[in-house]
Amino acid sequence: MKQIRILTGMMFVVLISGCASLPESFTASELPLNDDVFTQYHEYTPESADEIFKLDAAAREFVDNSQSPLSGDGDNLKNLIRQIFDGGELGIRYITNANTIASETFANRAANCLSLTIMAKAMADYAGFNAVFYEVDIPEYWTRRSGVNLLNGHINLRVSVADTLRKNQISSHFIDVDFDPQTIRSHFPRNAISKEKITAMFYNNKGADALLNNDDIKAYAYLRAAALLYPEFGSTWVNLGVLYRRHGLLDSARESYELALKLDSENLTAWENLALLHELEGRTAQARDIARSVRNKRESNPFYHFILGEEALDFGDPEQALIHYNRARRLDNSRHEIFFGMGKAHYELGNIDRAADFMKLAAKHAQNRQDEYRYMSKLSDLQSAR
């Protein structure tokens, strides 16, 4: 699979908890960067942390209007978060590639999980609440854009009334802000992370977007910024490796993948890209050994089979896609994405009734109104085609 590591909306960064750190003696000048190749990177200036988290006047007014001096802190917290998601108020929508700063997210009424978390953090700070970023250790999960598999991570935000964290007390006055409530219900382990890491994740996403758009100078500028700010974030090194490989900088690509693996030896995306690099350089046996190991580790992950189905569908093979989707469904019979994929495959095969059945299941299992409406719209189109 051709992969880029990205932090998307509903899923934030998938960096595995407990990863290693770089040795103190490892200086910035020793990082596998290539300023001498991407000499025009300085034409792009990544947003500062202040710019990323700044609320404009309209966003500040929205927060002010959500707070009442007659209500307690807990009620004001609930009202702020409710209005962020309430269709009659801000009504934030999920869009996977909405990699925007807080003020843009507010103006667009659209976010992925990273940009939602950034905006919610800025609003919580402005309102005087405590807010803590969390990185969630979810199974590998992919989406496809422009013929490329994007490995999604996940972050969310816990917002609490002002005195909760200061007194180190457990309080009922907190809310987890998350597009995907299943990550909360499933109790995946999570770890608090810093604002610096969140900022590096933002740069990584912007760099990945630029990679997808074949804007390699911009991609390098943002990935470089991420690497310098938070070099322990392995996803950045994987994406830089993809960029270097694209430009024939194979030694730099290998250094980048190996650095990602030093940070997390179970980073399967780094291993997979390293296998591809070995294949390109003629080390076929080594490439096959790594690929086999990665494949074996992913066999029990339904989303691995799901993304193989998506690939097969993109390549015009709906029958093979159904084989992969069915394997995914046997492992997890509750995911709307899998049912949607099966509906698409049956449609391509001309099985309109079966396609409609799976669209109904996708809508039934959708985790938000936006996806439910999307599936119901597809279902309506299918019913009209009968």
Rank of each mutant, 00 (worst) to 15 (best):
K2S: 09
G9N: 09
M10D: 12
F12D: 13
V14T: 11
L15P: 05
C19F: 01
A20F: 02
S25V: 09
A28W: 08
P32W: 00
L33D: 13
V37M: 02
F38S: 05
T39A: 04
E43M: 03
Y44M: 06
Y44I: 08
P46M: 06
E51V: 15
K54A: 13
L55K: 15
L55T: 10
L55V: 09
D56L: 04
A58T: 03
S66E: 15
S66K: 14
P69S: 13
S71R: 15
G74K: 15
R82I: 02
I84K: 08
D86E: 13
E89F: 12
E89M: 12
I95D: 15
I95Y: 13
T100F: 02
I101Y: 15
A107S: 14
A107P: 11
A107R: 15
N108Y: 05
R109S: 10
N112H: 12
A127V: 10
G128H: 07
F129Y: 12
N130P: 12
N130W: 07
V132T: 06
F133H: 04
E135W: 01
E135K: 12
V136K: 07
D137F: 06
I138Y: 04
E140S: 10
E140N: 14
W142P: 08
S146P: 02
T164W: 01
T164S: 11
K167Y: 06
S172W: 05
D178L: 13
T183V: 07
S186G: 06
F188W: 07
N191Y: 04
A192L: 02
K195S: 03
I198R: 05
A200N: 05
F202L: 10
N204K: 05
G207F: 07
L211M: 06
L211G: 09
L212W: 03
N213I: 01
N214K: 07
D216Y: 05
A221F: 14
A221G: 14
Y222H: 10
R224N: 10
L228F: 14
L229R: 14
G234H: 08
V242S: 15
V242W: 13
H247M: 00
E255I: 00
E258Y: 10
A260I: 08
W271T: 00
H278R: 04
H278Q: 06
G282L: 14
A285I: 00
A285V: 04
Q286M: 02
S293P: 08
V294Y: 08
N296Y: 14
K297Y: 13
K297G: 15
S300E: 14
F306L: 15
I307N: 12
L313C: 11
L313P: 13
G316H: 01
E319R: 07
Q320R: 14
L322H: 08
L322C: 08
I323Q: 14
N326W: 12
N326H: 13
R329Y: 04
L331K: 03
D332M: 01
R335T: 02
R335F: 03
I338A: 08
G341A: 02
G341H: 02
M342Q: 04
K344G: 02
K344Y: 01
L349N: 05
N351W: 01
D353W: 00
L361A: 03
L361K: 11
A363D: 02
A363T: 00
K364V: 00
H365W: 00
N368Q: 09
S377V: 07
L379A: 00
L379Q: 01
L382H: 01
L382P: 01
S384E: 04
A385Y: 05
